[in-house]
């Protein structure tokens, strides 16, 4: 990793890259943004299709409890991976289980679990903050470029690679199974299994992107680039690629701006993606006007 940082740092010193890349935390952040952006963009299109946007928010909220559980279990303060991934995956899979086994609507289940993980998170955070630094928890909630370390980057790379491969392989089947479970079963698919696979992938990527974007803001980056792509795309292929492009622009440009301004990275990334969304609306209205 050090070699990579040195090479990029030297390029910045030589004037080939912006001067902010002389800082290691900025290089780490940029690499994380390049990994997270495309994946959140691609997954966002399926999240919108499957109407899982607030499911994502629940996972983000569960991260608060996840960090606290990790710390209580004795994980280092800058790497609560088992607590975070473990708790968020358990919450996501339990929600999917309840959805498939009960007559409750998705909205109701999300409402119930969202409140529960928030309650548990607040109790645990109070327990934890009497022993640990609250700034680590704040970094999870709002994203913090400074706290991103090498281990986070390696974990993110492993998560992004595995999630990206599985997402690509299962994309057609996951999309088809979301339209009608009886039809997809008649075509030899297992919609329940595919739903668990997608939910696990989504949880992995949401958790992996928390330090950069933050638990409270991750929903925006999942939904907004895909929603903007929905305004511009004429078919599913364009839908995915435009969403990937807009999401990557949001994470990278937002990150570069957060290096220049004294504000959390997640907030600037979200602001950039929101501007892109409004831009897509303008383009859509203009194109419609031209056609009319």
């Amino acid at each position: 990793m050090e070699l990579l940082y040195d090479i990029i740092g030297n390029c910045a010193q030589a004037g080939w890259l912006p001067s902010i890349f002389q800082h290691t935390f900025m290089i780490r952040g940029f690499l994380a943004a390049m990994l997270i952006g495309p994946l959140l963009g691609a997954m966002g299109t399926v999240v919108i299709t499957k109407k899982l946007a607030f499911f994502t928010q629940t996972i983000g909220n569960a991260a608060m409890s996840g960090v606290a559980i990790g710390l209580l279990l004795g994980e280092p303060v800058d790497g609560t991976y088992a607590g975070l991934y473990g708790f968020c995956l358990i919450v996501a899979l339990i929600m999917t289980f309840i959805k498939n086994r009960s007559r409750l609507s998705n909205d109701t289940i999300i409402g119930v679990v969202l409140a529960q993980v928030l309650g548990i998170g607040i109790i645990l955070m109070i327990l934890v903050t009497s022993q640990f630094n609250i700034h680590q928890v704040e970094a999870i909630l709002f994203g913090s470029l400074i706290t991103l370390n090498d281990m986070d980057l390696i974990t993110l790379f492993a998560a992004a690679l595995s999630a990206g491969i599985i997402f690509t392989i299962t994309y057609n089947r996951v999309m088809l199974s979301s339209f009608n479970p009886v039809l997809s079963r008649s075509r030899g698919l297992n919609p329940v299994f595919l739903e668990y696979v997608f939910v696990a992938l989504m949880t992995t990527i949401v958790v992996a992107s928390l330090k950069l974007i933050g638990a409270l803001l991750v929903l925006v980056l999942i939904v907004v680039p895909a929603a903007a792509a929905q305004n511009l795309a004429c078919n599913l292929r364009q839908f995915v690629w435009i969403s990937i492009m807009l999401s990557t622009i949001s994470t990278t440009v937002g990150l570069l701006l957060s290096g220049l301004l004294p504000v959390p990275s997640g907030a600037v990334i979200v602001l950039v993606s929101s501007l892109l969304f409004y831009g897509s609306l303008v383009v859509r209205v203009a194109v419609k006007g031209k056609r009319a």
């Binding site: 691609a42 919108i48 299709t49 690509t168 392989i169 994309y171 057609n172 999309m175 088809l176 339209f179 075509r187 929905q230 795309a233 004429c234 078919n235 599913l236 292929r237 364009q238 839908f239 995915v240 690629w241």
Partner: peptide, 19 residues
Amino acid sequence: IPLTVSDFIKLLLQDYPLF
């Protein structure tokens, strides 16, 4: 959702990821 008729049939037809 920008799902065309061709997209829908391709989702059924091919294993290769549509995008």
